[in-house]
Design a protein around this nucleic acid. Structure first.
Lengths: 115, 115
DNA sequence: TTAATAGGCAACTAAATGGTTGCCCGTCAA
DNA sequence: TTGACGGGCAACCATTTAGTTGCCTATTAA
């Protein structure tokens, strides 16, 4: 899981994923063209994306084709969406409780404000 | 956006978020207890979470309370879920095309083309 | 057969990251 | 009022990260 988040944490790597969104199955050379850095630097980024299982490769002659693998991110992200949506509900409950607690002294006037 | 992914990329910080999921509004001291590192190290992690807007703080006397802010991650994550789900469809189409290509000999009715 | 193309590997560097320690300040309670 | 407690700030350190360059291999095309 850490691998996926770390892979996503870099702008260059997100840009590589963007490129593959737009046009799946590109070669290293193609992916490098749009990036203003050396081929070897791009190779390293792609290795990290591969390690995170976000990109899979397919050799065709001397060309290395790169394909998006959406599965691990979809999984991870669905999980965190769930957790955060729960938390969001909790937070609403809590804010409500806090505001009620603050309003104890004057709770008949029903005035409320948050943090 | 980079800030959010970078914040999420560290195990310690995800663990801090976990703690706040379980019990929102904890102090720095409380958050430190479960972490086997110095208070100052935890402070740095919390600063990063604050900068990513994933945690907000509220001073109460000499205590600093930390609260989860689910909004930015929910946003980011919904966006990426959308993109990846699109890509996932693309991939299915592509896998279908590949398998059809493999089945060429026994399925002559369907047309196929290479990657 | 040879040159150009696509890419890999290793060594190196600068900067960012994650941690430490020491000392300081404000708040609270005895 | 004084000492303990909750936390901040800054300097320092080791490791990781993101990039470079130079050279090598394998495939393709002339």
């Amino acid at each position: 899981m850490s691998d996926v988040f770390k892979a996503m944490a870099d702008e260059t790597r997100r840009s590589l994923l963007d490129q593959l969104f737009d046009n799946n199955g590109q070669t290293l050379g193609q992916l490098t063209q749009s990036l203003d850095m050396s081929r070897q630097a791009v190779t390293k980024h792609l290795k990290i994306l591969e390690a995170a299982n976000l990109v899979s490769i397919h050799w065709q002659g001397r060309e290395k084709l790169h394909f998006l693998n959406p599965v691990p991110l979809a999984e991870i992200v669905h999980r965190w969406v769930g957790r955060f949506e729960e938390a969001q509900l909790d937070m609403l409950v809590e804010l409500k409780a806090q505001s009620e607690s603050k309003d104890q002294s004057e709770n008949r006037k029903k005035k409320q404000h948050g943090l």
